[in-house]
């Protein structure tokens, strides 16, 4: 009914104004072409990932023969082989990575929100200077501080523990999140702070009772980004975690590559898929916060 009525409307308008409707037709054709191009690009971009997933269910010989992504004979053997391919079962590395990520998330949420509230709302001496320093540290390449930090933490006997990867997060060293939260708090009406003050709340209670509950989206963005970055982080985990029992997922994968060279791609792909799944899950559930976070601060 609606289709036919729009069609008649269309033909009427076509009869009346031929040039306009032809441009419209051109436009839909162009839109169709655009969608085709965008879909093609999406397939090209995702193809390697889908192929890796497919290959993780194939024998190592087939991986070098089959370039398609449709699996006809599922072989789950790679997962068992990969899981037990190193000194410890892969589950241990997953747990280690999860501990590091959980510690980093807790640290960033607590320390960054505290600093952000101070920068966004309170007045104090040297505020501009400190704020400027904070912004500069965002752009500081992490490798510049890694050598001295390594010296510091090795002296403290923290090598082969998770402490060098977690403790700095409780000291708000990921300044991007301070900035992200400052931006967010600035959008919260000040009247709410004032109302809390009138009700007798001090600065800390205003922070914990009013600001923190209102900045849940910013906290979620921080948590998700911290998770993804910590889960993917390689350089610092590589230098601090050298004993197999404390290996994180990336370090374990790398030692898998070194141990087997280019021989057992099947198990390697299987464990790579396992390593990527948590990030993919974070992507699925946290998309909203991720895109919002990137748009406001431009973090990766």
């Amino acid at each position: 009914m609606t289709i036919s009525s729009t069609r008649t409307a269309h033909t009427v308008s076509q009869r009346r104004e031929t040039p306009r409707s032809s441009t419209r037709r051109l436009k839909t054709a162009r839109g169709f072409g655009r969608h085709c191009a965008l879909i093609a690009l999406a397939i090209v971009m995702l193809y390697p990932l889908l192929w890796m997933l497919a290959s993780s269910f194939r024998s190592s010989d087939d991986i070098f023969r089959l370039s398609g992504i449709l699996v006809t004979h599922f072989k789950t053997g790679n997962y068992g082989k990969g899981w037990n391919g190193l000194k410890f079962p892969f589950g241990l590395y997953l747990i280690n990575s999860a501990i590091i990520a959980a510690g980093a998330i807790a640290g960033n949420l607590i320390s960054c929100s505290m600093a952000a509230y101070a920068f966004a709302r309170l007045r104090f001496r040297f505020k501009r200077t400190l704020f400027a320093i904070m912004l500069i540290t965002i752009m500081l390449p992490m490798h510049v501080v890694i050598v001295p930090q390594y010296i510091l933490f090795s002296r403290m006997g923290w090598l082969n523990t998770f402490l060098p990867l977690i403790v700095p997060k409780f000291l708000a060293t990921d300044a991007f999140f301070v900035f992200l939260m400052v931006q967010f708090i600035r959008g919260i009406p000040r009247e709410l702070d004032d109302a809390a003050r009138l009700d007798g709340c001090g600065y800390f209670r205003t922070f914990t009772r009013v600001i923190l509950p209102l900045m849940k989206p910013a906290l979620a963005t921080t948590a998700i980004f911290t998770f993804v970055w910590t889960w993917n982080d390689f350089f610092s985990q590589l230098i601090y975690l050298t004993a197999p029992n404390v290996y994180s997922v990336p370090v374990a994968l790398r030692s898998f590559v070194d141990a087997n060279g280019d021989t057992s791609w099947g198990p390697l792909f299987a464990m790579s898929v396992v390593a990527l799944l948590p990030v993919f899950a974070a992507f699925l559930f946290g998309q909203r916060f991720l895109t919002r976070g990137i748009s406001t601060t431009g973090i990766k």
Binding site: L41, M45, P48, V228, R254
Partner: peptide
């Protein structure tokens, strides 16, 4: 589209994707 194009940015820095690239 935005999500699909964004996904590689999240995964691109990982060892797993580097392993994939190597193959």
């Amino acid at each position: 589209y935005r999500s699909v194009y964004y996904l590689p940015s999240l995964l691109g820095g990982s060892v797993a994707v580097a392993v994939l690239w190597r193959q």
